[in-house]
Write a protein that binds this DNA or RNA. Sequence first.
DNA 1: GCGATTAATGTGCAAATGCACAGCAGCTTC
DNA 2: GAAGCTGCTGTGCATTTGCACATTAATCGC
Lengths: 317, 317
Amino acid sequence: MINAARHELLAKVAAMYYEGDMTQSDIAAALDLSRVKIYRLLKEAREAQVVRVLIDWPLKRSPALEARLVERFGLEQALALQTGATDSALLRRQIAQLAARFLESLLADGARLSICFGSTTYEVISAIRPDFQANVRVMQATGSLPHALKEFDSSALTRQLARKLGGEARYLSSPLLADNAEAAAVIREQAVVRHALEQVRRADIALVGIGDLDPATSGFVRAGVAGSGQLRSYRERGAIGDMAWQIFDRAGQPFPCELNGRIIGVTLDELSALPRTVAVAVGLNKAAAIAGALRSGAINVLCTDEATAASVLEDGM
Amino acid sequence: MINAARHELLAKVAAMYYEGDMTQSDIAAALDLSRVKIYRLLKEAREAQVVRVLIDWPLKRSPALEARLVERFGLEQALALQTGATDSALLRRQIAQLAARFLESLLADGARLSICFGSTTYEVISAIRPDFQANVRVMQATGSLPHALKEFDSSALTRQLARKLGGEARYLSSPLLADNAEAAAVIREQAVVRHALEQVRRADIALVGIGDLDPATSGFVRAGVAGSGQLRSYRERGAIGDMAWQIFDRAGQPFPCELNGRIIGVTLDELSALPRTVAVAVGLNKAAAIAGALRSGAINVLCTDEATAASVLEDGM
DNA sequence: GCGATTAATGTGCAAATGCACAGCAGCTTC
DNA sequence: GAAGCTGCTGTGCATTTGCACATTAATCGC
């Protein structure tokens, strides 16, 4: 810490420069010091944080929390939105927007993006600016449902996103859920499916949501993939969350259950192997699931809000 | 107010320049824009306050003076800044910073803050750290002016502050000044206005400035609410200062004049009833007005500088 | 007191910045 | 369609800034 008199001098020079719009030479003349000295004082003022340049982002974030998440879970990046929103729908939309802006910054021409559809990723995709163009190849990473729930209609969304981004779509022409593990294996062996999944594994970026298996709200139930009783029993036996329709435990390890075997789509191991997996999730109730997902090592970037981030860190202690 | 996409662009460029230490040419190359364009974006970002340079003044206080103020006027707390600043603009900014730090310490999540806009409170609000978040409900406590003087644009400032704090804004949708007392009464009776004023009365904290009715500098004249002749005559008849656009006398009692009746906003009595009213004011010329305001009993916390504090104490003897 | 070492200060120049001016596209008006 | 207007965009240049290096002052050990 610098002493008070110097602090005062630094602040004074900084005020003359930044608030008084004087040039360094003017200040030097006014204070009877050399120009270089003023330059050095200004530099010192910046270094000592006597002057701070604050940038007001349309979406405000919490760098401190982000840094802790990055360190704690070995992430590449974390995004924690500062928000006063209490309404959960509004909050979700804000997070989706944050994630969309981030994705846009990531997607360069020729990028290959794998998408695991869920209600959160649906919102992220909606939040991507219609005029954003990047010629991206969009790949459907999980199979399709038989019925047309708008936020779970994977192939429609894949196409929509590809068109929005001005790129091409690669579909995973397969049901999301097979009747049993054997059938799932057969389906995965089909040329089109195998080929599509291979493409998914070659993505530069994957986008996933994280679920908490809550029987009341889980996409599993809404999509009719699992019953609420089934989820309850999984949770009791140690399952903590899901991502890309794969259920995992507290440690982020695949949870041994027949459901995981029946899903046709990218696996957690495959997600881990991708260069960059971006996960989006909010809600205090999801904190444990998110912490588990982060422990799996499959995620490189987490996009969430402050409150959830804090809760995840607590859980991760 | 700029739109979100532009705001984003400005913030991005500003971050690259100020945080990423890139030169304007580098940024131009990276974003495929011309250097001049980057220069102009940076300029716009500064003007639109998307980037703000915050100077941290050493905020040294005078506990002895503060204690005397507290005792003499029965305050909850007094803040008297020790400063060598001679330039009055600089001094005002330092006081604003002191007040802002204090407010930040006061504002907890869920707090309700009523603001009486004037040039001083404007500066206090500017000095609040953009990264300070508290989910505060901000309430406009005095009506709006017809023209757009930035430091008097109450509703814009209310919104800006609410956004900054990550909370919500409650507007007082009413003119500040009615043509006569009867019209003012009618306006006050309107459901929206009545409701807004009710909210203001339920605040936890109020922030006010104190004016001295000097015809040459008073906000009344600058805002076109009163003529300088009028102020002169009020002063001759015993008016000493104003706060929340209400004029009072040496004893801090409402000064009987038609102007007070025409103002739509929080009254001195209502301020007195609030749990905590924070007043910010500096300048030897304001000493008598400040002493009057303190005698009114409406103020719990005074934020000023050493010299003014000393002068107020002298006046208050 | 004197050389050695370190910190503070100033010189000179290349790089970065700010800005006046010119050019150009889109729009309105006649 | 010409003329005028408005709002963007880029060129060219003067000013301002950042910094390497030289210089001077201060501090210390002996």
